[in-house]
Amino acid sequence: MNSNIRAAVIAVAFFIGLGAGVAQVAAQPAEPVVKITAKKFDYTPNQITLKKGVPVVLEFTTADVVMGFSVPELGARTDIIPGKVVRLRIVPDKTGTFTFFCDIFCGSGHEDMTGTITVVE
């Protein structure tokens, strides 16, 4: 599943990237959206691949308690509020694999609630 997700995200980013190029005549090209569901005690997906310099909107939902999403090396974090769709726009500025984690203590499995964002050229 993870490799499929990775491939899918790259494909979306590539598609939108092409779209952005074409859409220079358009007003506001849509940015790729990666939907992430947080629940006790994991994220789905928990491995995400993005392209350096390509804006992306991470779209979070949770049906559980308040959770967090933090990836310090990319300077991004947000609260994830039950009942709301929380959007976080990021533009990865470096390549590498970066850990994200829940930074709001949410229960007995909190410390295992992690994932990775891999940023490629």
Binding site: S70, P72, F98, T99, F101, D103
Partner: peptide
């Protein structure tokens, strides 16, 4: 090491 939540916000 904020990557491991070893910090105080």
């Amino acid at each position: 090491y904020p990557q491991w939540d070893w910090a105080t916000r």
